[in-house]
Design a protein around this nucleic acid. Structure first.
Lengths: 142, 142
DNA sequence: TTCCTTTAGTTATCATGATAACCAAAGGAA
DNA sequence: TTCCTTTGGTTATCATGATAACTAAAGGAA
């Protein structure tokens, strides 16, 4: 998240910078604008998820399992590969989703270390319930 | 931060959605791309800050004081107005910056409640040290 | 087999965001 | 004055990101 409510003006940036080439300030400002807009959109999504007792990460963890074609389940490691967060966070997230009954775990027969997760009926229902509003936010202007 | 390493394909999104109008999927995908790119840029910035024992918020707190024209100091409340984070987080951040000697606090004479913060020499030095790399990341392609 | 290395996930701990509830000074109305 | 409301910040507590260090199963060389 980018936490500056008012972006600096072009003049301000130019004032700071003997640090970048001519016309660099414009590029810097447009990147800051980009970050700020993304943060605002991200914040709308986070608010939406939290209204549904969800978080983006918890949602995406269900999504990566759901979207897998010709498979119903993914291992902890496979989920970690698909999500850009650390392993311990994946562990915590999957455990809490399991505790809430949205996922079901089992051990893989061939390898006693591996845990595999699949959506429960309730998990599918929850996803279906949250998707429309999610797409609505992404589809909206701004 | 948007945590999906691989974005869904257009076909996947269309598969999910009777939830949005025709051609909506393209719009959804471009918003997801936007979020993902912003997250990657944000992550480069966060890495840079943490290499300097800094965080984006700590940096921006110094910046909003520094960029104030014709004033050297801002109150806690004024800083809170300029940063898009909650009051308690501002308190904690300003305290830690003060403890590290980057800011100096004083009470405002007219109002015994108000705290005002200004950059120390060390704070200015730190900002000057961090700015070039910050702009370089923002100026870079991608 | 025995032992060493690799791989899968977990535990411990920290940093940093949020909200709710609080304290204390300021500022008026009675 | 006294008391009530408003305003400026803080405390307590939680959620959720990270890294480092750990446990235990797997797999392979000797």
């Amino acid at each position: 998240m980018f936490f500056l409510k008012e972006l600096p003006t072009l003049q301000m940036i130019e004032g700071y910078g003997e640090h970048f080439p001519a016309h660099g300030a414009q590029q810097v400002l447009s990147k800051l604008t980009f970050l700020r807009e993304a943060s605002l959109l991200q914040r709308r999504l986070d608010t939406y998820f939290s209204e549904h007792g969800f978080s983006q990460l918890r949602f995406l963890a269900l999504v990566v399992i759901d979207r897998e074609i010709e498979r119903d389940e993914l291992s902890h490691g496979e989920i970690t590969e698909r999500l850009d967060v650390s392993k311990p966070v994946v562990t915590r997230t999957l455990n809490s989703l399991t505790d809430e009954g949205l996922l079901r775990v089992s051990r893989r027969e061939q390898d006693g270390r591996t845990k595999v997760f699949e959506l429960t009926q309730q998990g599918r229902k929850k996803l279906a319930h949250v998707f429309p509003g999610y797409f609505a936010i992404l589809h909206a202007d701004g």
